[in-house]
Write a protein that binds this DNA or RNA. Sequence first.
DNA 1: TATGAATGAGACTTCATTCAT
DNA 2: GATGAATGAAGTCTCATTCAT
Lengths: 225, 225, 225, 225
Amino acid sequence: MGIAERRAREKEELRSKILEAAGQLFVEQGFQNVSLRKIADRIEYSPATIYLYFRDKAELLNTLCGETFSQLLAALLELEKADADPLSKLRAGLRFYIDFGLQHPNHYLLTFCTPHHHCRQLEKTPEFEQTNRTALETFDCLRRSLQHCRQVGLLEFEDLELTAQTVWMFIHGTVSLLILNSGDPHFPWCEKEQLIENSLDLVLASLKCGARTGTTKQQHPVAHW
Amino acid sequence: MGIAERRAREKEELRSKILEAAGQLFVEQGFQNVSLRKIADRIEYSPATIYLYFRDKAELLNTLCGETFSQLLAALLELEKADADPLSKLRAGLRFYIDFGLQHPNHYLLTFCTPHHHCRQLEKTPEFEQTNRTALETFDCLRRSLQHCRQVGLLEFEDLELTAQTVWMFIHGTVSLLILNSGDPHFPWCEKEQLIENSLDLVLASLKCGARTGTTKQQHPVAHW
Amino acid sequence: MGIAERRAREKEELRSKILEAAGQLFVEQGFQNVSLRKIADRIEYSPATIYLYFRDKAELLNTLCGETFSQLLAALLELEKADADPLSKLRAGLRFYIDFGLQHPNHYLLTFCTPHHHCRQLEKTPEFEQTNRTALETFDCLRRSLQHCRQVGLLEFEDLELTAQTVWMFIHGTVSLLILNSGDPHFPWCEKEQLIENSLDLVLASLKCGARTGTTKQQHPVAHW
Amino acid sequence: MGIAERRAREKEELRSKILEAAGQLFVEQGFQNVSLRKIADRIEYSPATIYLYFRDKAELLNTLCGETFSQLLAALLELEKADADPLSKLRAGLRFYIDFGLQHPNHYLLTFCTPHHHCRQLEKTPEFEQTNRTALETFDCLRRSLQHCRQVGLLEFEDLELTAQTVWMFIHGTVSLLILNSGDPHFPWCEKEQLIENSLDLVLASLKCGARTGTTKQQHPVAHW
DNA sequence: TATGAATGAGACTTCATTCAT
DNA sequence: GATGAATGAAGTCTCATTCAT
């Protein structure tokens, strides 16, 4: 009994070690430059061992993304239950999303900033379906939160879906640039905390005023390249 | 003299050919799938020839991005001269930036969505310096444009630098997600044009209302992972 | 006592299961594509278990071939007992050999069409000795059958051993080409049944006429390559 | 001029070296067990170098077979011109075929005794088409030779195609067993030269007597396994 | 007895890069 | 200036085999 338990525990630990090593290497060396061999080297196991835990490289990556989403979703669902006004909760959720990305830069880049050309073949696997469902649920949190704010009159907007997607794009822009360029000495970056809070301020402000009010769509020259 | 001139001209032409072929291939096949051999094949030269023009692959890529963003800068500077109100010109500039990204998705991803681990060794090369200067100048366009709008009372904000960086982050979020996920069938994306225009609307709205007005910074739980 | 017996029986059953699964897989997937893991998967045991029954892959294969050819021998011995004239029985035996090969193409290929480089180490094992004895006995059937035919005047030939070996070579040629190329669309193969019967006709005809009669050994140019 | 020539010569030499090494290794280690690495090691070149001469392993094998056929065909066509009676020429051709196989055992096994599962993808390449055409032409030599013998009354048979294919099967049986088992100490093989000549004697005898004469197709028990 | 876990070796293949010519 | 030839390193992945439990 104890033996079986210990085995299961050890197996789970190695699995985690693989995922952790993979995540670290992605940050250190860039996603494309990490091979299964390097991951195996880092944890001092044979490359073949990895195949005992993940069918192939694609599944390893997918798992990495999936785990990230699960954690994020769980935390966001927790935040929803908080006893606070909808706007505060919206802001807290967005802030949480940003912090989460900054604390898991490798997973974030992997999930949102990397072309997933390998997904074609994964689309039918149950793991992928699961990851996908989690992602959609996560986005649902944002929809709900915005909807709440509108219902109680704290925010104004017409199209919920369009608004939610735009808000996500903005916040994603903040997270991804902070991850990628925070250490770049060639650009006079403002202080990180300031950038985050200002992002949240602007996003919420844009929805408070009623975005469309007085805004005229301008004619713009089309870029031909 | 004529001979030397012709030689110099030919040399420059081949250099351009290489860059052009590389750029095309990036668009066609995606960044990761382009090898020097493929570039060489397309222009019907030997792979070794490329090394007469670029020290290594990194330098080739860096040059390519640099040249691409020179085009962006040139176009944005052109837009500045237009005879229009500052707000329209700001909006046109942002729109142009988005379109540019969508039309050069691979260059955009390479420049803004990829960790640049290879830059260490490039930092001292004159090509890199040049690229960097271009990037800073491009960002200056945004600063100037925002400043104009504030001066004439069309927009309100306190910190110019902070605002410019935040605006860029938002717009970058729009571009990068549109590039990466526009074809993703697993997410109910809104129509691309709608997303772009809504992004511009919201960004400008946030600056019109005076972002800080009435916004209270919320206490938020810190994420521990 | 009962326990020991049951255990021995169970052990023998698992051994049979392994051999059976291996045989099936060879037919289904071709010889080269069968790994120990696939065999283990099919019987729902661990790959390691196979090593409790067979020293290594080579021994497994050897045993498999040995058992298969035991079946051939048994059937041929049965045919011998039939109440028919010797020539009919010779023909029936050869026909049986051909059919057997076509029904066990992978075993046949493995045994007769594949260089046995691994035999060196196997030569001393009792399993190999057994296999070998079976093969020799099988060939003895052919010798006996030919001898019978000669004794009763149905066939004419001088050297029994030489004749038997030649007949086997011919029939082997028929079997092996039918196995390897029967599905080849690039060659205008005659109908399989025709080829088999014609082979038998020609073989027997050659022995009826007295092969040497009137045949002059021709001078032939030696091939130098 | 001299330089280009030398280069071309050197390139051709290396190509030959690769093919030669591959052929040797097939004999020594068995076809399935030869990897590109081993071939590269033997000629003391890098594995990658082989890819400069052959697209992949399949093309290397195909070339090997193709070259063999070409040599065989050329020699057989030469034999056809000889001034001799058709029967002698037929026998000489068959003998030549046997000798050729014994002198190129690796090529022979590769071409005629190995399942060509990899050909599916090759079928459309011009190299494969060429190899195939050569093979068909080679078989045509046999057809013509048999036809000549029949025309001048030296041999009797009904169906030319059926007869040619059967003769080939017989001769192939002789060649392939001699190649594979000539060194087998477990079987009391007759002397090689005797086996060859006896094969030729029997084949020709079977066609002289008129195979069908007096041969009754026997009822035979069907093998059920 | 049976096996889960692990691995060394090796499979085919591609790539960025170098160098003699 | 241009390149044909060559390669070391690395890529993903499979396999027969071992061993502690």
